[in-house]
Design a binder for these strands. Sequence first.
DNA 1: AGTATTTCGTCATGGCCGTTAACAAATTAG
DNA 2: CTAATTTGTTAACGGCCATGACGAAATACT
Lengths: 403, 403
Amino acid sequence: MAQPAPQSQSEMRQRNLSRVLHALASEGPLSRAEVATRIGLTRAAVSTLVDELLRGGLLVERGPGRSGAVGRPGTQLVLTDRGPCGVGAEIGVDHLAVAVMDLRGRVRVRLGREVRNQGSEPAAVLATLSGMLRAAVRDAAGAGLRPAGLTVAVPGLLARDPAADRARLLMAPNLGWRDTDLAAGLPGDLGPVTVENEANLGALAELWSASAAQGLDSFVHVSAEIGIGAAVVVEGRLLRGAHGFAGELGHVPVRPEGRPCSCGGRGCLEAYAGEEAVLRAAGLEPGPGVRLGALTARCEAGDAGALRAVRQAGTALGIALSGTVNLLDPRQVVIGGSLAMLAPWLLPPVNRELARRTSVAAGGRATPVPVTASPLGPDGPLLGAAGFTVRAALDEPARLLRA
Amino acid sequence: MAQPAPQSQSEMRQRNLSRVLHALASEGPLSRAEVATRIGLTRAAVSTLVDELLRGGLLVERGPGRSGAVGRPGTQLVLTDRGPCGVGAEIGVDHLAVAVMDLRGRVRVRLGREVRNQGSEPAAVLATLSGMLRAAVRDAAGAGLRPAGLTVAVPGLLARDPAADRARLLMAPNLGWRDTDLAAGLPGDLGPVTVENEANLGALAELWSASAAQGLDSFVHVSAEIGIGAAVVVEGRLLRGAHGFAGELGHVPVRPEGRPCSCGGRGCLEAYAGEEAVLRAAGLEPGPGVRLGALTARCEAGDAGALRAVRQAGTALGIALSGTVNLLDPRQVVIGGSLAMLAPWLLPPVNRELARRTSVAAGGRATPVPVTASPLGPDGPLLGAAGFTVRAALDEPARLLRA
DNA sequence: AGTATTTCGTCATGGCCGTTAACAAATTAG
DNA sequence: CTAATTTGTTAACGGCCATGACGAAATACT
């Protein structure tokens, strides 16, 4: 019958344990005293928290830290690289991938395989993926890591069902799957299974990798694996929408009475900047294997048709993003996934449209929103999937301590 | 200086006090036992919390509640209607208004005055408003109410300055004001002064009035006092944007190469559905006194030009909202402010565009997002301003108990 | 070299807070 | 009129963090 109601009492303790872990995750090794000042507790309180985490095996002590300053040097604390780990998987149109990440956020095991999943039976693909997962987890076990959960990135729409606590895949147009329970076909002994949209996970990967460095916690992340998706991150939280369908940038109107779109509307961004539309505009016939990578090659070679196609896509994307920026006032726009490869040719027209159309949202400032390409590129979704479990573990240390 | 650091200790207590107040605010009179089950604490704990709130004068006991069920009937608790109150004010283009709201959310005093504020000196307007505020607070004092804070709704952009904890008005195009410190010209003895955009406050009023009834906590609220503003509410929180400029729906592109807009862009929604554009399209010359109300009258009279103008505006609004809905997947779209008066003629074309263009965001469902007119109409910003202080008081009972 | 100073981590004490369990009060069911 | 049920209060208990003091380990000064 689940837990006997979490006492508001111990919740405070749990939150403080979690705050210690997050402090160590984001700011390298710290002493107890440094943690105390970071999170606003006393040294005594932090001592007991750290003791509990050390006993639970989530933290390890290093030798006395390099001092340089006067006073007794503190003993450095770091997250363990041997305890619980996050397992992430990615189901792409033409590949499968698995990654195991430790609590420090480092990828420790990684497997990839080229597979044409388009039109395959879900059960067969999941069986292959399960084999890869088992191999990866075996490798991880050799390094002292035990899985704390599995997160799978898929290119499709998910329905979050609050009753069963796992999400069903509603449809994945590029795979040709619809209404599938992915969790049922995956190993259940790796901890709780989460299925999530790959664009969302890519954005979260960006959030977690960036927030370590700068304090970027509100941005729009654009990717183009399936159609064109935008994940919106506000104050460090992913905006999912009332039904979980937020982020459909691909169907924002950019030429209201323009080309018909597969969705039934007219002039959607996807009809101008979607993978298929861009490839055709560049004179390439979309098909298995012919994807944005091929277009990147032509752009690098200076192919005039390819350059023009990308320029037009950039203009359309810039129009859609202008609306987005006016509406949401994000701190930054990040282009991720395989679109990131096209950034050198895509960004100029995008920036031009944004400069024209967002002066009011900028409050009269001269500088419009910065648009950058994600440094993670196509790795985002996989890293986000593995990181998802790691973050969940840091958020709820209780689960890990009991084990 | 300030407080000697709030102990994580007493924070829990404060949150629980606040949870008791919120339970009573949203679900009428409740007994201690009912509150306990609502917020997940034991009866004993709630008893001590309620005692503290009773002693502080924020709650009052009614007689034993009507039972009907077996067992000893509980004593009904309600928020006081005599203690602290929220003071709200609105600075409009052609009016000033003040409202005093008690903790139960009822408006107890209300003053309004027709004034042409366009182009007036801020100091003069603030002096008039201050007089109205003093009169309203005097009336409220007669009913046993003492102000716990003042919130002012203004039609303009605000810069939130974290250093000074009050916001400056950056610019209010319809008033002709720019870079003004409004708080400095208002009475300081009514508690903390907050200045906020009127569209945001209108959305919050909608949130608070709706959340009492249904559980609507994620929606887009459109209003058209200055340009066209959209406030986005997600999970009960207002999305402000990285620089506080979120919600500029008016400059979302709807005809990318269409009419030039005052912002320097082309084809912005405002150029098609803004007050000025719509009035002109209907053959009315915009000017002092000639506003959307005049247009509503013509529509009611069946004026063909007015109807056509509103229909075209609705189409443009529908295109912009299609993008918004695809991006954010809100549970509902609410048309507020004076646009609400035009709803009978505005909604059909809006719904038509949404139906055409948001099928994917609906996940294939047949029903598109519901679009409704706010029942609050033009009162939204004023009610939101007064409610803002009330909510702040319920969130931080400590401040009120000390007094 | 030796002492003072500074900072770190721990310990004992105390206060606050919510839970548990028991009980009196007030009402309905039979 | 008694049994059952629910409410609200009280006392004992345990958990958690703050406070203050202390030993430990480094640097700074004489």
